[in-house]
Design a binder for these strands. Structure first.
Lengths: 147, 147
DNA sequence: ATTAAATGATTACCATGATAACTATATTCA
DNA sequence: TGAATATAGTTATCATGGTAATCATTTAAT
């Protein structure tokens, strides 16, 4: 997370450019604003998810599984790959979601190392309940911010 | 962090809009791209800081203190306020930085509850060593990304 | 002046991210 | 075919974020 209330001014950035590096001040400035804005939005999203017994990652796992409605679940490694998150975090989070009855985990038929992950009806319902508020929050944030 | 490799398509977003909420699809789409881009940049920054014995927050604490060169340090609460981070996290991080000799903490003269935080010479040097690479990383990321 | 409320910092505890090391199973190739 | 390598997942450990509760001190109010 990146929470610097007063970002470095253009003047400060230009002084740095002079001193050591051939950076594009505009792009760096844009990046700093983006980091702060994204951090604020992420914080709001985490708060929203927490209020619904979810988290950013839990939510995204449900999304990824919900998308693949033609397939009978995904391998844990496929979920991890689509989300670009480390395996141990995936293991832990999937287990927590199973505890809560939102997913099932089952050893794969052919490959005994692998785990098949499936959404339960409860999991799908939980996701669909969270979606409207999720999009509303993002919409409101962007709306507020661009004013 | 937000790491969904395939973001919801415009079509998907429009379907959601129809179904439950009067959202601006463009703005939501923009927000999702921003979240992902910021997450990737934050990950690179954390890696950079880790390689130098710092972290995003440790770095920002040094920046905030370095900025206030006219003042003889800041109160811990002032640092927390400028960075919008919770007090317990600030306490812990300041103590770690003191352990490493980058800061000093001293009980305030007038208010015995408060702590005065000051950059040491070593802390200032550490910050100035980290700055060029920090800006270069951001520059390169933005440059790469906009291609 | 004394009590009540507010403030600064800390402690205890929990959630979520990472990496390194490990187990078990599959695959490759000599 | 058997040994070496690769892959899927887990465990252990650590870093960094949060909230709630607590302690000490200061400020406000009666």
């Amino acid at each position: 997370m990146f929470f610097l209330k007063d970002l470095p001014s253009r003047t400060t950035l230009e002084a740095y450019r002079e001193r050591f590096t051939a950076m594009d001040v505009d792009k760096v400035d844009e990046a700093l604003h983006m980091l702060r804005k994204a951090s604020l939005l992420m914080r709001e999203l985490e708060e929203y998810f927490a209020s619904r017994g979810l988290s950013q990652l839990r939510y995204l796992i449900l999304v990824v599984l919900d998308r693949e409605f033609e397939r009978d679940g995904l391998l844990a490694s496929e979920v991890a790959e689509r989300l670009d998150v480390s395996r141990p975090v995936m293991t832990r989070t999937l287990q927590a979601l199973v505890e809560e009855g939102l997913l099932t985990l089952q050893t794969h038929d052919q490959d005994l190392r692998a785990k098949q992950v499936r959404l339960t009806r409860k999991g799908r319902a939980k996701l669909h309940q969270a979606l409207p508020g999720y999009y509303r929050l993002i919409h409101d944030f962007m709306d507020r911010d661009t004013k």
